[in-house]
């Protein structure tokens, strides 16, 4: 059985119905473990104090903000090329989650930045890029409900997602050029673990896993809702015609 079979709404509903509780429970467990561990059972960093603990929310949220947009881009491409409705609806379902993740990253960044840099907001390239990404999410989310015909809405939002991706990356470079920032470089890559001590690293990984699972659970739930809404509308339309 090919992977594409799951793009069939019936099969998707059956599979996602089984996956949803598993993903939800795993997300709950890993988030609880990761956050409690990170907040209460790690030492304060010598030069950051206890504020460093905001990374257990900030870093996973920032990663998800970008990854969710990438997932929307892939889903949009699948819709444009193969016209699987589930794919388009999954992109639609993911957008508000991505927007909230971006917002969380921005807010926790501000909370962290205040004691560190002495200001809630700085026009630092990273912060600015996330603000721009947030604008792209808002535009994408605004376009969906504005178009009546659902297939046209899926088409046009997909094209916007494609073009938006290119310009989001372009903006990132433009902003880098415009202002070299204060934000520390990425400390989180598998081959550069030395930047961050193991006591912080392990609970952070648990938190990241928790955020990924939370996203999976939410996007499954929201996609299922979108599919049911679509079916409801189709039923209503048929009733009017009959």
């Amino acid at each position: 059985m090919s992977l594409w079979d799951y793009a069939n709404p019936v099969k998707f509903m059956r599979l996602s119905g089984r996956l949803l509780p598993v993903a939800s429970i795993l997300a709950g467990i890993s988030l609880a473990v990761g956050l409690v561990w990170g907040f209460f059972f790690t030492p304060d960093a010598e030069n950051f104090g206890s504020t460093v603990k905001v990374i257990y929310v900030h870093v996973p949220a920032a990663m998800m903000a970008i990854n969710i947009w990438v997932m929307m881009l892939v889903a949009s491409l699948i819709w444009l090329v193969r016209r699987h409705h589930v794919s388009a609806l999954a992109a639609k379902a993911a957008a508000p989650i991505g927007a909230v993740m971006t917002l969380i990253a921005l807010i926790t960044g501000a909370i962290w930045g205040q004691p560190m840099w002495g200001t809630w907001w700085a026009w630092d390239p990273r912060l600015t890029s996330f603000l721009i990404l947030f604008l792209f999410y808002l535009g994408y989310m605004a376009l969906w409900p504005a178009i009546e015909n659902t297939e046209t809405a899926a088409d046009l939002t997909s094209v916007l997602c494609l073009v938006g991706s290119v310009f989001a990356v372009l903006s990132r470079y433009a902003v880098n050029f415009w202002n070299q920032g204060l934000h520390q470089g990425a400390t989180l890559s598998l081959d550069r673990q030395q930047h961050i001590a193991n006591v912080y690293w392990v609970p952070l990984l648990v938190c990241i896993a928790g955020f990924v699972l939370l996203f999976v659970a939410l996007v499954l739930l929201r996609t299922r809702t979108e599919i049911r809404l679509r079916r409801l509308r189709a039923l209503e339309q048929r009733e009017r015609l009959a």
Binding site: P9, V10, H85, I227, R230, R231, A234, A242
Partner: peptide
């Protein structure tokens, strides 16, 4: 013709 709705596929006709 207006078809009966048997599965979700139909909702996407």
């Amino acid at each position: 013709r207006i078809r009966r709705l048997d599965g979700f596929d139909e909702a996407f006709g």
